[in-house]
């Protein structure tokens, strides 16, 4: 194993999103990972693009945005270090439904979604492990959306 690959594997397993990951799974997942960084204002991806990645944020802040006619871009969530950006790679048609923009300098691990989907299909234990980690992200996002729709703070 090369030093670079080992470093990525360590980074992935040390990221809170993959906390407690078994070593064999860590090796499989890290095979789909690479380092990425984004300057302030740089976009990770745009609405409508193919969602072929997700990002483990190591440092910085990413704003998730939707463009609204007459209102410009509206941020509906910020994601910071130790969190994850992107669930659309899991679900067909694998397409982003919002923009993601680095608010400040951001370092991340970019995971190749197609690569990981393939490994999850081949090894359902790995697939279950990955789904267990993404399901809370989906549920938290759904609950947050419910609160935002209710507009509890009013005018």
């Amino acid at each position: 194993m090369s030093a670079a690959v080992k470093e990525i594997e360590e980074i992935v397993r040390e990221h809170p999103f993959f906390e407690g990951l078994l070593e064999p799974f860590g090796k499989l997942i890290s095979g789909c990972a690479k380092n990425a960084h984004f300057q302030p204002g740089e976009y990770l991806f745009h609405e409508g693009d193919s969602a072929d990645q997700f990002y483990l944020i190591r440092q910085g802040c990413v704003a998730l945005e939707i463009k609204a006619p007459g209102r410009g871009a509206i941020t509906f969530q910020t994601v910071r270090e130790d969190e994850v950006v992107g669930v659309e790679w899991l679900i067909p048609p694998y397409r982003w439904s919002y923009d993601a923009r680095a608010v400040e300098f951001t370092r991340a691990i970019a995971m190749d979604g197609a690569c990981l989907r393939g490994k999850c299909e081949a090894d359902h234990d790995l697939g279950y492990e990955v789904m267990k980690r993404f399901m809370p992200v989906l549920i938290q996002r759904l609950q947050a959306a419910q609160m935002q729709i209710l507009d509890v703070y009013g005018e």
Partner: peptide, 22 residues
């Protein structure tokens, strides 16, 4: 804040309970 125009805000966006974890 629950939502913000990009030009208005550089802070957290999301429900208040998300701050607790940090």
């Amino acid at each position: 804040v629950d939502h913000a125009a990009v030009s208005d805000w550089r802070g957290h966006v999301g429900v208040v309970t998300t701050l607790l974890g940090r």
